[in-house]
């Protein structure tokens, strides 16, 4: 009993419950990411992070000569967590939109890909048009530009919001959903893997600049201008020196910028 208690005390003490300090100043940057959005950011079985976002972030940190630490956070709480100072930047395929700019600042984009619709292989849905999807059930990850897109453009369909893409994938596979909407790269990656062989991508959707924004950027707390300028310079630098192309080609067979 005593040893359990002392273990518990050590555990609680080791959690360093309240800390202070915006760490960027001392050459240390804390980056928030989701870890559930392959191929952009995903957790390996051993708990390490992998993906396009992660490698780009790492390249940016090398370029800025700062040490980076990744912190995973659920998507629907990722902006509140940034505002609550749980990390200093979000690199998690977050689209730069006017809605979000009210709360956070963004770097320049580091990639831009359109949304798409995926359905079951034997589905009767043959195009991603409004009449084809009328009365159907569309799944999307909540709090994303894709869920906003579905709610605005497919107002005659029922939109269901899920915490992570994993859940809508399960529900598309078992037939609770007729279609799902997400980034074309995310959906293509999935349907081409063993896990997604139930389903296919019907087509991409035209980008709506108001909803989809200007592509994915790095979100920062408002007023962190020095950090933003450094990140913009670093994005330019890795675009110029070939590092970006190297990472791009590792994941995709086209330029996502």
């Amino acid at each position: 009993m005593k040893s359990t208690l002392s273990k518990l005390v050590t555990l609680v003490a080791s959690l360093s419950l309240i800390t202070t300090g915006s760490a960027f100043a001392d050459g240390h940057l804390r980056i928030g990411t989701e870890g559930a959005y392959p191929p952009f950011n995903n957790l390996n079985a051993d708990g390490s992070l992998t993906g396009f976002d992660i490698e780009i972030a790492q390249a940016l940190c090398d370029e800025m000569q700062v040490e980076c630490e990744f912190i995973t956070q659920d998507w629907d709480g990722i902006i509140p967590a940034l505002l609550a100072n749980k990390f200093d930047a979000i690199i998690a395929s977050m689209s730069i939109t006017e809605e979000r700019k009210k709360k956070v600042d963004f770097s320049e984009k580091y990639y831009n890909t359109p949304p798409a619709i995926a359905v079951a292989k034997n589905s009767s849905i043959t195009s991603a048009s409004v009449p084809d999807l009328a009365g159907k059930t569309i799944g999307a990850q909540g709090s994303t530009t894709h869920s906003n897109y579905a709610e605005e453009k497919f107002s005659q369909s029922e939109v269901r919001l899920y915490p992570t893409p994993d859940e809508y994938k399960l529900d598309l596979e078992n037939g609770r959903l007729d279609a799902v909407i997400d980034d074309v790269v995310v959906l293509s990656e999935w349907v081409n893997s063993d896990a997604g062989n139930c389903c296919k991508v019907v087509s991409t959707l035209p980008i709506d600049p108001v909803i989809n924004g200007e592509g994915a950027g790095i979100a920062l707390r408002k007023g962190e201008d020095e950090l933003r300028e450094k990140l913009n310079a670093a994005i330019k630098a890795i675009r110029a020196n070939g590092k970006y192309a190297e990472i791009n080609n590792k994941y995709f067979d086209f330029d996502v910028y």
Binding site: L15, S16, L17, I18, T19, T20, S22, P80, A84, N85
Partner: peptide
């Protein structure tokens, strides 16, 4: 979501740039 906002508002009374972080477990 509210506790960090609240604590930082209180902390902000004494500190120009409040930056308390609260561990998820806590």
């Amino acid at each position: 979501y509210g506790l960090p906002l609240f604590l930082n508002a209180v902390y902000g009374l004494f500190h120009p740039a409040p930056d308390l972080q609260i561990n998820n477990f806590l």
